[in-house]
Design a protein around this nucleic acid. Structure first.
Lengths: 243, 243
DNA sequence: CGCGGTCTTGACAGACATCAATTTCAGTGG
DNA sequence: CCACTGAAATTGATGTCTGTCAAGACCGCG
């Protein structure tokens, strides 16, 4: 039943973000999909590559990163289950960054050719997937704002708010808790600071009574205040409001 | 002939980035387009709005920006003639940022409805325009890298390299010179620093003999060294290599 | 039990921000 | 034609956030 499992993840995701009619659902069901386990730290796609398939994250975390001068790594996005981080590869190549598994992850691959055929057959699905790439884009813009205008404490807080909010949508964060297997070095590379400073900012968030962060689990002790400190407004995530 | 003028700008842009067959060209020609002059500083679209049309920049500059806490403004992208900065509004609303004219500009509006009809009729055009939004996205990622990993001097240098390269594509920069009507406050808001520091970095670029920047014209005295200082690699712009 | 990765802490340095004043200069009106 | 005005650019002095360097603590793992 692995095939069925991957399809159900994909259609569940699509139903969460849009109304999916029967014809479109059938098209999605007919996509050939291949599940795969990847160990933590493994690259899914690499800078400069041209790929012939997209991957959807089924379980775990992925992150997208670019290498700047001196080999400095900047993480530009986190990805949670349901995301198709290289969806853009359908229309843009070569890839200009790396996508790597943060911890052990489960992904599924969808070959470009049938994917494109499906999109050509359905303006509705084209809209849905195009929109997904645009939401991605909106997150990058918000990261630019974070790095450009928010201080180190707010940047870390903002990252936590974003993760919590996105994870709740896919049912992977409870009211006050979620798993996040990133080291402080990873956090530093995502928020534009050194690991030493990331450590101090995390401690400060703890001292303020806003979070607990033990090992891989983050607990939100006062989400409202955290959001306020972070200048977090979830509008940029373009979540579908349940109707 | 204003209608014809706007159409020719649009098809010229599309031909620059992709092969356009006759059928697709005809579809584009049939779009209703309305030209408009806008004075410098005027908003084209505002945060929170839902729009029913896209705008293509015909002449001048636009910039995209978001307002963070304390009213601090972060510019997240510059736009040059040929760009359709709110193309994403076809599939994503409401708008989550502002787009404003940097100086006096000429734009043209394309209503969503016929635009969508056209895309539904042509997988080729869907590909082209979808790709445009993905290139946008790639620029945001690079800005994240700049703000996260490059120092103030490199960030300004990088911005100049990006502008020069993009302007050359549309024939608006000569080998060593282009117009750019931004104040140092604008530059500071785009590169994540204070105007005072932006001023000092610009002076440093002058002192190094890399640029001249008088009024609204920037002159590149040593583009290779500027690129090297900026850690600039144009791959992220995904320019079509002329064949 | 030893090893390497991760987290933590401290001292110090440096990049950049802040505050404040001065200069430049295009536009405007007398 | 020239004083007046305000925005933009420039400069200096000072403060602070964040980086750098270095060491130690903790901990899972072989």
């Amino acid at each position: 039943m692995t095939m069925g499992f991957a399809h159900s993840k994909l259609t569940a995701r699509l139903r969460a973000i849009a109304l999916l009619d029967d014809a479109d659902a059938a098209l999605v069901e007919s996509l050939p999909i291949k599940l795969q386990n990847v160990p933590g730290g493994q690259d899914i796609v690499r800078d400069g590559q041209t790929v012939e398939q997209c991957c959807m994250l089924v379980d775990g975390y992925l992150f997208r990163h670019k290498i700047a001068a001196d080999g400095k790594r900047q993480i530009v996005s986190w990805h949670v289950p349901g995301d198709i981080p290289d969806l853009y590869s359908l229309h843009l190549d070569p890839i200009d960054h790396n996508i790597t598994a943060l911890g052990p992850a489960v992904i599924c691959f969808i070959p470009h050719h049938p994917f494109k055929e499906m999109l050509n057959a359905s303006p509705g699905l084209t809209h849905i997937f195009w929109r997904e790439t645009l939401v991605d884009s909106a997150l990058f813009r918000e990261w630019v704002v974070s790095l450009g205008k928010r201080d180190a404490l707010a940047r870390i807080a903002h990252m936590i708010c974003e993760l919590a909010t996105r994870l709740r949508v896919v049912g992977l964060a409870t009211e006050d808790r979620f798993q996040f297997p990133a080291s402080q070095v990873d956090v530093a590379d995502a928020t534009g600071m050194t690991p030493v400073h990331a450590n101090r900012m995390i401690q400060q968030l703890r001292a303020k009574g806003l979070i607990e962060w033990e090992g891989q689990t983050i607990r939100l002790l006062n989400f409202e205040e955290l959001k306020s400190l972070a200048d977090f407004d979830e509008a940029y995530l373009h979540l579908r409001t349940p109707r």
